[in-house]
Design a protein around this nucleic acid. Structure first.
Lengths: 189, 189
DNA sequence: ATCAAATTTCACAAATTACTGAAAATTCAA
DNA sequence: TTGAATTTTCAGTAATTTGTGAAATTTGAT
């Protein structure tokens, strides 16, 4: 790996993190390399920089592409394919979240809904269903909320996050003026 | 696995999900089994129900304990250790998030901060640092926000999530009355 | 159309991770 | 204490995942 120590530590750390998140270590490293790179890189450059085989890089890029985490482009007068990551970290984060939702959360909700449609044949199943319902509702509420929040622009989102738990005051205030601002009335449970 | 089809499908799905989330498949299944179980289970019961070796269950419980995801208790007149999951799904979710933050996010922030303290020796490092700074700020803001939101009780949280992107209106309103309600003045950027 | 450059595929080897059974350690009732 | 019940550890094997090189395919300039 002929990278500066700075980039190297980032790349290695990212590889480890990928591991914890169910992503192949080398794929994590490839992503990290692209993320900090000044300019788009082709597969040979990546293989060279990271010390991987060319075929491994090809597989990794395929994987990253399926996650919509890399952009493919061509440089004038060069036949090779160059890869880069989107510039906006918030957009990256959003893509990642969308993709994980699609691949992991949605199938889980589907499974839970299926299970909840069954007629429980004994007390154990009845209890299991009740537990599954609790889990379903939590996941459903969380992901719906997440989807909804994606409508906001990044600056609004940042402001809201900085506000943090202080938004609570909005609820207290709103409860006193329920029809204020024309929204539908929302109360606790 | 001598479980009802309902529980079995839940357990198997959870095992697969665990896999995607960097958790051993069998550990995921153990957790799922405890989660839907009516009463606490001992290790032998779990080994029997899931068809794992006793030692594998022991390892899995150790892992789940380190994540603070299972509770240990003793039944009167029985020497064996019985395990269960907390009843409140929101508390479970919170524990999981806290633990992941501690294990994965915090070390990443530490690494990024370290990298940002270095003096870049070339343009490539300079660019890499800028990118790392962007990532740092996003992670930092997100986790600080998350920590802050944990102060709220579950009902408030649910209400807020149901409100979703409508909280935006709070910002618009607040901007017109900056010193309203005694909070420090918060504006975009 | 041809062919060299570039990329992908895939069977296999290497490396890692998961699981087991046996043995060791711990616990606790008598 | 003792020893049976219970839990944990761990070395070895099984299973899975990862990474490679060679071959096949695709691409696009001529």
């Amino acid at each position: 790996m002929n990278l500066t120590p700075l980039v190297q530590s980032f790349v290695l750390h990212f590889g480890e993190m990928g591991n914890h998140w169910g992503i192949n270590r080398t794929v994590g490293q490839m992503y990290a390399l692209l993320y900090v790179s000044e300019k788009p890189l082709n597969a040979d450059e990546m293989a060279e920089a990271l010390g991987f085989s060319r075929s491994n890089v090809s597989m990794g890029l395929k994987e990253l592409t399926s996650w919509r985490l890399v952009k493919l482009q061509h440089l004038p007068g060069d036949r090779r394919e160059y890869y880069s990551t989107p510039e906006d970290v918030w957009a990256i984060f959003q893509t990642l979240a969308e993709e994980r939702k699609k691949r992991e959360v949605d199938p889980t909700l589907t499974m839970l809904r299926g299970a909840l449609l069954e007629t429980p044949s004994n007390p154990a199943d009845e209890h299991a269903q009740a537990r599954m319902a609790e889990m379903h509702d939590l996941i459903d509420l969380t992901t719906s909320w997440f989807t909804d929040m994606q409508r906001l622009d990044v600056d609004t989102l940042k402001t809201l996050m900085k506000l943090g738990s202080q938004v609570q005051k909005f609820l207290e205030f709103k409860q006193k003026l329920p029809t204020f601002m024309g929204g539908s009335e929302i109360t606790k449970e």
